[in-house]
Design a protein around this nucleic acid. Sequence first.
RNA 1: GGGCGCGUAGCUCAGCGGUAGAGCACUACCUUGACAUGGUAGGGGUCACUGGUUCGAUCCCAGUCGUGCCCA
Length: 918
Amino acid sequence: MDKSYSPADIERRWYETWDERGYFTPDIDADGAPFCIMLPPPNVTGSLHMGHAFQDTIMDILTRYHRMLGRPTLWQPGTDHAGIATQMVVERKLASEGVSRHDLGREAFVDAVWRWKEESGGTIERQMRRLGASVDWEHHRFTMDDALSDAVTRVFVDLFDDGLIERRKRLVNWDPELHTALSDLEVINEEESGHLWHIRYPLVSGGGHLVVATTRPETLLGDAAVAVHPEDERYTSLVGEELELPLTGRRIPVIADDYVDPEFGTGCVKITPAHDFNDYDVGQRHDLPLINVLEPDASLGDEAPEAYRGLDRFEARKRVVADLDEAGLLEQVDNHTLMVPRGDRSGQVVEPYLTDQWYVKIGPLARPAIEAVESGKVRFVPENWSKTYFEWMNNIQDWCISRQLWWGHRIPAWYDDHGGVHVGRDEADARRRSKLDDSVALRQDEDVLDTWFSSALWPFTTLGWPDQTRRLDTFYPTSVLVTGFDIIFFWVARMIMMGLRFTGDVPFHEVYIHGLIRDGRGQKMSKSKGNVLDPIDLIDGIELEPLVAKRTTGLMQPRMAPDIEKATRREFPDGIPAFGCDALRFTFANLATTGRDISFDLGRVEGNRNFCNKLWNAARYVLMQTEGQPVTAPEQLSLADRWILSRLGAMLRELQSHLAGYRMDLASQALYEFVWNEYCDWYLELSKPALQEGTDEERNATRHTLLTVLEQTLRALHPFVPYITEEIWQRVAPPLNLDGDSIVIRPWPEAAAVDPEADAHAEWIKAVLRAVRRVRSELNVPPSKGLMVQLQGGTDEDRERLLRAEALLRSLGRIEAFEWVGDQADASQCAVALVGELRLLIPLQGLVDVSEETRRLRKLLDKESQALDRSRAKMGNARFVDNAPEDVVAQERERLAGHEATVAELEAQIERLAGLGG
RNA sequence: GGGCGCGUAGCUCAGCGGUAGAGCACUACCUUGACAUGGUAGGGGUCACUGGUUCGAUCCCAGUCGUGCCCA
């Protein structure tokens, strides 16, 4: 083995091997409860970002772990066609060539998207392979595969037949750039600064005016009324009067509606039913006309006064304001912060817009989905997220599922020339169902379905539904869904609703919600901020210049480039080193706490790379010690051997409980601490004297334990760090004569029982060594200098332990000899260390002056006295002794005794030194 | 306005009723035959603040301040 761990050398080859051998395709016939995770399908043309890498790591840990438990285990991969996102990318690409989708026509455009999909669709899969994701590629699915598309159509028709899908004209969120409706979830409301214009509406009779305030003055052109609160005494007499609607020559009524907040502004509200969701409702109540003044691109249309027709909405706003001002009708303009709705893809301000759209009536689907979580059939982890789920589900709105796009599942509805709508699996089916013969001309609905419609079916369509396949039968309901909180509404809730409706069962039993990855300062990672890290760059490393180039090209706002470049050069003056996939994965596991946000700290990746190196070198040591040595199952183990096996068992039990609770952070920490702080720091060190000085049998036992513990630890680590564990395992398996070609398919290690005797012995050894090392360090005794250690006091147990451990202690503590001395022995020339009742006297023979040693002891005494005082106060408190549980009191009593003894020892020693005139 | 979080060592975060923990950073010493991507020892925290419950509060409760997110 090489002296240093170099991930690049070992990570390349294993993935292909695993994949080729079919390890990731589940054996459905295996015993054990099936385990299944659905990969949240990434956008087919997307690339892997930190969030994916994090999520994939969690899923891979769970998958590999359950596979090792011997369960038929499926991690189902696939990609999403991502309607709007993909169409936008292709449209922009075409636009750069001066072509619009309309130039191409529908068919040619959709072909172009498919070509783009074929061209760039493999990126994210290649990246997932780099991450070591053990998904079943053989059964990869795409939301627009024929089978999945058929399932979508079938679901649509079924819901339609149930009366749960209908076509209605109502206000939708309209994206004027993409020319499509959006669901509420696809609209981002953000606070922006704007203005509040106060406008006078003259009364038709009797002079005077009402003042209304608006943030969108151009909508005035579509006003149908002005509303006041029915109990607002200022205006009650005016209800029923008419107002001159400025700039239009129209007259509109004053109406009363308790939607109006009399406290806000003047208490008068303009009502524009065709361009505002609230006003729409008011309009319905009062039978007001819908005056649609906008075109699909949000320019002003025919229903607007001629002067404004053809103007863009923002241009029209300026003109309206100027014209009002000129007419003396603009009373006041205030600065005002308002919530502006923007399309999440285009970033354009969304307009409420009156169109025909398809809706899913969600109420009847939501009810059982709420019950599924209430009853615990679906469990959120952390539990808290169920509140968010209920909050939304209890206030859920009908789902607008039609999109005016070309890329996606086309709506299976056909229109005749008389306004009739005919739904069916295909045109023939639609005719059959509506009893239409071929003489009736039908044209299919131009719209496609919301991307999330097909995603909602993902857990069962990927497994073969509507066919009752073996896979569906085995793996549905799936075990756990791993996802971010940002798509609980978009996806999780809808999967539960659709799953229950179409399979009669929940799609998954648990939903593990993880946090969002942010940068080191807690900022959201985004291209425009220039703080994006590419997981592949953390694996392979990247030089500064390419990193700068990567972060500054293709920006939406190129003027940000210099700032981003500066920040990048400051943060990564030497680029990013190659940490390797395993280090990155281990870091993700480390960071997977219960909180919401995760600030990604590069220092931790480095620390975990070092951890991999530690593991690598430990393995190197073990293999060096066992090379060419036949290792057989030992008949007797030393206390050190028993101790490390006991500790391994404890760690494995802890690990399993953390994995069961989705606490990857605690799980990875348990592994880290065991490997580094117990196996490497202590057991490997303890093995050295054992191998040098032991009998043949003892040496065999030590070698066997070194190998066994390493091999089991590798297995426990494997789900987290698959590459390095496979690489090492391949070398550790032969000396242990283990079956199996790969660690991937080895069983999960069984935890040995705790061995209290061995644990106690090891703790004693550690305490003695620490005490001696502390003296050595604090008195600056060179590490190379051997020490004499005199032993005083102590129990019979101490004497026995010393007997068993003397060789170890001498070797590890650089101690030349131990010598038991009587209580009367002169300790004035010695440094003193205490281990329980045992005194370790280390003769210094002038190595250190007395005042130095006195100072050292005083420091110890200080700490000890404080602890003693606390302890005394506690035991002196009758209410504590009376009320606290017995074991707590007993523990405190023991502590008190310990502190008292230690303080006495230290004081005595200080006095002895003082007697020397130091 | 409603809802959900968070505030613990210089930084990133665990812990969540019984004497404060990790990684990174820091100090001193050490190239000893696994590892300097290392070893040994050490420094550093009135656990945001104020009250309350309790024998005992970083942990539970209430409030205040700061901060983040979601929904309207």
